[in-house]
């Protein structure tokens, strides 16, 4: 028997379908519109040429993305280097080491760190962290690591506090909670029976964590890291304050630099020529595609991990 659909169902179904369809169109229209707006710059500068040109010269209308791409790459990699060990440490502490009564408050505190808006990280980085960096941390690094022949090149220059290094530190504090909470959830899913068998064989707590839990939670942890990578790539306000906006590729970490996001935030409203604005849209398009791909990879890892655990 074929049942007639009530009118209310048809109306509500259509309305809710169009809402979910809108979500799909939003993503694709973002790509289309960004491409459309940047087509002028794409035709003028090409793809590879744009990516590998360091020159960013609004007066002569020559634009290249090499410097902001380099800045984005360095801040992202450095912040991940700082954040991953700390985040994994926190995750391990929360799952295995901490006494029971501390688990919930510390977990909440770490999540609070994720709830603080990025503009406040930026303010704090500019007014509090940057002076500390310029006065104590960076001179100390120059005196120690800066003396080593090759690596020393990374720490050259007058420490100002407004540089790649400070930006990476601020960014790393921001992304720690993302990695930590996903890693904690994945570690928590290790079946007790596996841990108990390892203990029964005489393993120490660290052996269990290192050889049982981390391999088990591997995919989830990768997913968390790649997700944090995507976040770090697109973060604007936290780095806009402490990076300066300097379109030069410098080897030293103690120099002002630019990322894609910082360039957009500082120059978008000042762009006075079509090709300038179009180049900025081009940067936005590159950032969007990059982060979309990276987030898709993260999602892939997390979905695979989920499937693995539920088996």
């Amino acid at each position: 028997m074929k049942r007639k659909l009530p009118l209310s169902d048809i109306i509500f179904g259509i309305v809710s379908f169009s809402a979910s369809f809108l979500v799909l169109t939003l993503i694709f229209s973002t790509i289309l519109i960004l491409y459309n707006e940047s087509s002028l710059a794409i035709h003028r500068f090409g793809i590879l040429n744009f990516i590998f040109t360091e020159n960013w010269d609004p007066v002569n209308e020559i634009f290249g993305a090499a410097a902001p791409l380099y800045g984005t790459f360095i801040t992202t990699v450095l912040s991940l280097l700082f954040a991953i060990p700390v985040a994994l440490g926190i995750a391990i502490f929360l799952t295995e080491v901490s006494p029971h009564f501390l688990k919930s408050p510390i977990g909440v505190a770490i999540e609070m760190l994720a709830a603080i808006p990025s503009i406040i990280y930026g303010m704090w980085g500019l007014f509090t962290l940057a002076p500390i960096m310029a006065e104590y941390v960076e001179p100390a690094l120059q005196k120690t690591l800066g003396q080593i022949p090759l690596i020393g090149k990374l720490f050259e220059g007058e420490p100002q506090g407004i540089d790649l290094f400070t930006a990476s530190v601020v960014l790393s504090i921001m992304i720690v909670p993302f990695i930590a909470s996903i890693a904690r959830d994945s570690l928590n899913l290790t079946p007790n029976i596996m841990k108990e068998s390892a203990y029964a064989l005489g393993a120490t707590k660290w052996d269990v964590i290192k050889d049982i839990m981390i391999p088990y939670a591997k995919l989830g942890i990768y997913g968390g890291i790649v997700l944090a990578l995507g976040r770090a790539l697109g973060e604007t306000m936290a780095v806009a304050f402490v990076l300066g906006n300097n379109h030069q590729i410098t080897l030293s970490l103690f120099e002002a630099a630019a990322t894609i996001t910082v360039t957009l935030a500082n120059e978008f409203t000042e762009a006075d020529t079509d090709i300038y604005l179009s180049s900025l849209f081009y940067l936005a398009l590159i950032l969007f595609v990059l982060s979309f791909v990276i987030l898709a990879i993260a999602k892939f890892f997390l979905l695979k991990a989920e499937r693995g655990y539920s088996r």
């Binding site: 960004l34 957009l264 935030a265 978008f268 900025l280 936005a284 979309f292």
Partner: peptide, 11 residues
């Protein structure tokens, strides 16, 4: 959810 918010601004 994680797409850079500044890109949303440009869009």
């Amino acid at each position: 959810v994680s797409v850079p918010s500044i890109v949303v601004g440009t869009f």
